[in-house]
């Protein structure tokens, strides 16, 4: 299982406290994870990093709306697999819910 965290660095649409709290819990958990500054930017750049991130089996993503995340990957030519991907929405869900979802089943 892999974890991907998006910091949405270039806009203020994701609440700062939620972003920081989720990042702090990931950082403090001891797990390995990938963090990107901004998925939108990587998608616009068609960054090869997205292909590496999309190609990892079971993946839990902390970002924004699942529909946006799905098509951002698609727009970069690296669609997410149909199965095994969970997207947690930091725009609407609490840091508690997102962190619990990301770290579900992980020994912290």
């Amino acid at each position: 299982m892999r974890v991907l965290y998006c910091h949405c660095a270039y806009a203020k649409v994701v609440p700062e406290d939620v972003k920081k709290d989720v990042l702090a819990r990931l950082s403090g958990s001891g797990i390995a994870f990938d963090a990107v500054a901004d998925l939108c930017e990587l998608s616009a750049r068609k960054d090869p990093a997205l292909a590496r991130l999309a190609d990892g089996g079971e993946t839990r993503i902390a970002a924004c709306f699942p529909r946006a995340v799905q098509w951002l990957f698609h727009a970069a030519g690296t669609p997410l697999p149909d199965d095994g991907v969970e997207v947690w929405n930091m725009r609407e869900q609490s840091a508690d819910d997102v962190a619990a979802g990301l770290l579900r089943g992980v020994e912290v």
Partner: peptide
């Protein structure tokens, strides 16, 4: 992250995107 970089935290026992 605030500076716009993507960062992988590599730690024992975890899985991250491949080096490729």
């Amino acid at each position: 992250l605030e500076d716009g970089h993507s960062v992988t935290r590599a730690a024992p026992g975890g899985t991250v995107a491949s080096a490729d």
